[in-house]
């Protein structure tokens, strides 16, 4: 599948214009009191379901902007999950952000 991604600045573009930046995992945690294990978990460990997930993309061949969006890796379609609670947090990814 040569799918497309909607850049918030440039619109729909071929996926090969972008760099994948991985799961949304929230901002870099404060260093004070951060254990080694917490750090390496934050940096590397994920749950990866075949469901919509929030992730980061960089439009390097376009506007040079990082943005996050929801994509379902089982279909490669942009897709927001149904909100499960009032905050509208998706049910499937870890790291709600801060």
């Amino acid at each position: 599948m040569t799918f497309r991604i909607t850049c918030p600045v440039c619109g729909s573009r071929d996926v090969y214009e972008f760099t994948y930046g991985g799961h949304e995992r929230g901002p870099r945690p404060a260093q004070e009191g951060l254990s080694a294990e917490e750090h390496f978990r934050w940096a590397q460990f994920r749950t990866t379901r075949a469901e919509a997930q929030e992730e980061w993309w960089y439009h390097g061949a376009g506007c040079g902007v990082w943005f996050s969006m929801w994509r379902n890796p089982a279909t490669n379609r942009e897709e927001r999950p149904e909100p499960v609670d009032a905050r509208g947090t998706g049910p499937t990814t870890e790291g709600d952000g801060e």
Binding site: M1, V15, Y20, P73
Partner: peptide
């Protein structure tokens, strides 16, 4: 391709 992908689609 470097993005997480559960499809088995060729490109």
């Amino acid at each position: 391709d470097p993005q997480v992908n559960y499809t088995t689609d060729a490109t």
